[in-house]
């Protein structure tokens, strides 16, 4: 069942076209990844879903209602630029944010206690946020996002700036939310996170959604056209191969994408000639690879993709 419905949405800021005719659907019980390089239009799209800014054209529906102050309450949003009031106490602050999301005082207090306890942070209840460490504040920010227990969760670059412990914690939360049948939408420019967690993806580039769909299907459709090669010996032959793209290369490892209709055997033969092969495997391409194929090599700044 789709809970977020983005349909032909465009948004410009002056002459900059931030989002161009984007459509996708987020389903309940799934994790949806919005990915693409910085400046591709992900944050603008998320802000429009959160009714922070309005689209110029197109429509966004949440639970089948056009976005409004009402639909805001059904969403828990962790923005990329996130923070807290420094001079407020943790408890007061969470209460304020939960009340803004429509919770009653009593209900909000109960849930704040639950989440603070769950995160081992109940002792911070009466501390000022300014006294907390960065990692502690991040936990409070998670709680602020989820405390009103909505059906939809939107995280904008949630893992950027997180320490490893909080990174794991957030992953757990996201997986748990999916298991509870909630819908999770998060944006990232880190492809490996998407591969690990997402059910569905939407690839953004220069304001356009260039590829949308189920992650497994997308990978399957791409076909097993990538060779993983581990070897001992002189690997210089790899640079001489035609019709391939080398994505990952170290002294005894290479990930080789076969571009035209060449047979992978050709590479195997060449490799056997020059090196001692330890591993030869034919796999589906990585998401980075798919992204590059989709938008074209010339349109990608490799530094923006990790």
């Amino acid at each position: 069942m789709s809970v977020i419905n983005v349909k032909n949405v465009s948004k410009s800021f002056g002459k900059t076209r931030a989002v161009i005719n984007v459509s996708f659907e987020v389903e309940t019980g799934k994790i949806f990844g919005l990915l693409g390089p910085n400046g591709a239009g992900k944050t603008t799209t998320l802000r429009m879903i959160n009714y922070i800014i309005s689209p110029d054209t197109g429509e966004i529906r949440v639970h089948n209602e056009t976005v409004s102050s009402k639909t805001q309450k059904w969403i828990g949003y962790l923005p990329e630029e996130r923070g807290l009031y420094k001079k407020m106490k943790v408890g007061e602050q969470l209460l304020y944010l939960a009340q803004l999301k429509g919770l009653s005082t009593g209900e909000a207090k109960k849930r704040i206690r639950y989440w603070l306890e769950r995160f081992g942070a109940i002792d911070w209840h009466s501390k000022q946020v300014g006294e907390l460490s960065k990692g502690m504040s991040q936990k409070i920010q998670f709680i602020a996002t989820i405390v009103h227990e909505p059906d939809i969760y939107i995280f904008d670059e949630p893992f950027s700036g997180l320490d490893p412990i909080n990174s794991e914690l957030l992953k757990e939360i996201i997986i748990e939310l999916r298991e509870k049948g909630k819908a999770v939408l998060f944006s990232t420019h880190r492809m490996e996170q998407v591969e690990q967690m997402c059910d569905d993806i939407c690839l953004f580039n220069n304001g356009r959604a260039v590829l949308t769909g189920n992650l497994r299907e997308i990978k399957k459709n791409a076909g097993k056209n990538t060779v993983l090669l581990e070897f001992v010996g002189d690997g210089s032959f790899i640079e001489l191969l035609d019709g391939v793209r080398i994505n990952n290369r170290s002294t005894n490892f290479a990930e080789i994408r076969i571009l035209d209709d060449q047979k992978p055997q050709m590479i195997l033969e060449k490799a056997m000639e020059h090196t001692e092969i330890q591993k030869f495997e034919l796999v589906e391409p990585s998401l980075t690879e798919i992204f590059i194929t989709t938008v074209g090599e010339d349109n990608v700044n490799p530094k923006e993709l990790v």
Partner: peptide, 17 residues
Amino acid sequence: IEEKSNRIIEVIASSIR
């Protein structure tokens, strides 16, 4: 300015007009 520099504003903006 404080709400901006504390980066709380976007959380608030996702709850209130």
